[in-house]
């Protein structure tokens, strides 16, 4: 992994107000798809017009997880796979906060898989953006639950002997209220999907197919970052409102992209308040400052 030296005079970036510019340069490799996704996330956040102090980002471990370190919001870079339970606690303690979880395929679906299915089942009001680059990039490219059958990684040098997950199908089966997939090349659709996901009440999920040229691309002879982008884009087929189980995710055949789920379902908090309200007519604040006598 290489890092770029910061140029002497940096022209202002349109997203500067949402960036911890003092932390630049970032650690992502040249050509990595995460930068594009990060820009889309920032733009989508900016477009909401929400008070930035009312939005928080939580991430797990991995390249994508580092987004939390660069965004000028309340941001939490937690343990591997645990971004969703951490975000669950934060959201329930501060229900007025908008929560965005960003993480990679390995973090969200291997070590964090159990948390993902339960957060979706509970319909926690959280937006999850998953950068799927088919391997563990941060640590040099090991096999992940997204690695295509037969693809080479440092822990599957002869090709992965396992079949990968279809994350959108999984998210939908677990109860997500919004599910979409795009490749990193489809920036405008991606930005608009993240925007819709942010506005969605409930568990919303956006998967982005992104190139990891330094590890996955190099090991599978996929060429430059641009070639990878074009390859994924070329494989993509836009099919809105398709049943998520038919939203094929197969880099050898086709990558079905689009918005697959957009439904209404009561959130955890909707149910919790409704079921428990009979016990307590006025819903009280949990915060020490607001409690009587303290």
């Amino acid at each position: 992994m290489t890092t770029q030296k910061a140029p002497k005079a940096i022209p202002p970036h349109p997203m500067d107000s949402l960036l911890r510019t003092e932390r630049m340069p970032h650690i992502w490799c040249p050509g990595c798809g995460i930068g594009t996704v990060f820009s889309a996330v920032l733009a989508a956040i900016k477009n909401t017009g929400w008070d930035p102090d009312s939005i928080a980002m939580v991430s797990g471990i991995g390249c994508t997880g580092r987004m939390a370190g660069y965004i000028r919001l309340d941001s939490f870079h937690t343990t591997h796979g645990r971004a969703l339970p951490f975000a669950t606690g934060l959201k329930l303690a501060k229900p007025e906060t908008k929560l965005i979880v960003v993480s990679g395929d390995g973090d969200l679906f291997a070590i964090g898989g159990n948390h993902f299915i339960h957060a979706a089942r509970r319909n926690m009001d959280i937006t999850v953006v998953c950068v799927n680059n088919f391997n563990y990039g941060m640590t040099g490219g090991q096999q992940a639950p997204s690695t295509p059958l037969g693809a080479k990684t440092t822990t599957s040098i002869n090709g992965s002997p396992e079949e990968p997950f279809n994350f959108c199908h999984l998210a939908s089966a677990c109860g997500a209220t919004y599910v979409a997939r795009w490749t990193a090349m489809q920036v405008r659709s991606l930005r608009s999907s993240i925007g819709e996901a942010l506005h969605k009440r409930g568990f919303s999920f956006v998967e982005v197919i992104a190139p990891c040229p330094s590890s996955f691309g190099r090991r599978n002879r996929m060429g430059s970052a641009l070639e990878m982008l074009k390859f994924y884009h070329g494989r993509s087929v836009i099919r809105g409102d398709i049943d998520p189980k038919d939203a094929t995710m197969d880099i050898d055949r086709e990558i079905v992209v689009g918005k697959f789920v957009d439904i209404e379902r009561p959130t955890f908090m909707d149910h919790y308040e409704k079921i428990n309200r009979s016990q307590m007519p006025q819903w009280r604040s949990m915060h020490p400052d607001h409690q009587k006598g303290r």
Binding site: F76, R82, F86, G89, L92, A93, T97, P288
Partner: peptide, 15 residues
């Protein structure tokens, strides 16, 4: 694992 992560999140939420 989730329980512990969740109470950390809640604590940063001020509760």
């Amino acid at each position: 694992i989730a329980s512990m992560a969740t109470i950390l999140g809640a604590s940063w939420g001020g509760v």
